[in-house]
Computed example of a mutant assay.
Amino acid sequence: MLTGKQKRYLRSEAHNLQPIFQVGKGGVNENMTNQIADALETRELMKVQILQNCDWDRDEVAKALSEGTGAEIVQVIGKVIILYKESKEQKRIQLP
């Protein structure tokens, strides 16, 4: 579980990132969560964008991605979700 100070730090780090994955009409599936988990192992911090044609609520998408990948939800703002998962092999981000 991330503290408020850690979330603030991660939000500032994620500010300049572009969304890598997009959740569309199909919602969240196992293939997508596997790909996001692999990307999180490499990057640790990433943005996921929810498209307008997505049938799922943004909080449902965030919860499904968090549970499927084992990542922490840093922030859900508008149609963008910021996820963080500490890398086992390529740790780059030092949390305060």
Rank of each mutant, 00 (worst) to 15 (best):
M1F: 04
M1L: 03
M1R: 08
L2Y: 01
T3L: 01
G4Y: 05
G4E: 03
K5N: 09
K5F: 13
L10W: 02
R11T: 08
R11G: 01
R11D: 06
S12L: 01
E13N: 08
E13H: 02
E13A: 06
A14C: 05
N16L: 14
L17Q: 04
Q18I: 05
I20R: 08
I20N: 07
F21D: 00
Q22D: 03
V23I: 14
V23Q: 02
K25Q: 11
K25C: 00
K25D: 08
V28E: 10
N29C: 10
E30A: 01
N31L: 14
M32D: 05
M32R: 00
T33E: 07
T33C: 11
N34V: 13
Q35I: 01
I36W: 12
A37Q: 14
D38F: 13
A39W: 04
L40Y: 15
L40H: 10
E41T: 11
T42S: 15
T42N: 14
R43Y: 15
E44N: 14
M46A: 11
M46H: 13
K47F: 11
V48C: 03
V48G: 06
Q49H: 10
I50N: 02
I50K: 09
I50Q: 00
L51Q: 07
L51S: 13
Q52M: 08
Q52C: 02
C54L: 09
D55N: 13
D55G: 04
D55F: 12
R58A: 05
R58N: 05
R58V: 02
D59S: 07
E60N: 14
V61M: 10
V61A: 07
V61P: 01
A64Y: 11
L65I: 09
L65W: 04
E67G: 12
T69G: 02
T69S: 10
G70N: 06
G70T: 03
V74F: 02
V74H: 00
V74G: 02
Q75G: 06
V76D: 03
V76Q: 07
V76G: 10
I77G: 04
G78F: 05
G78D: 09
K79I: 11
K79N: 14
K79P: 13
L83M: 05
L83A: 00
Y84N: 11
E86I: 05
E86Y: 05
S87A: 03
S87Q: 03
K88R: 12
E89R: 11
I93K: 00
Q94E: 15
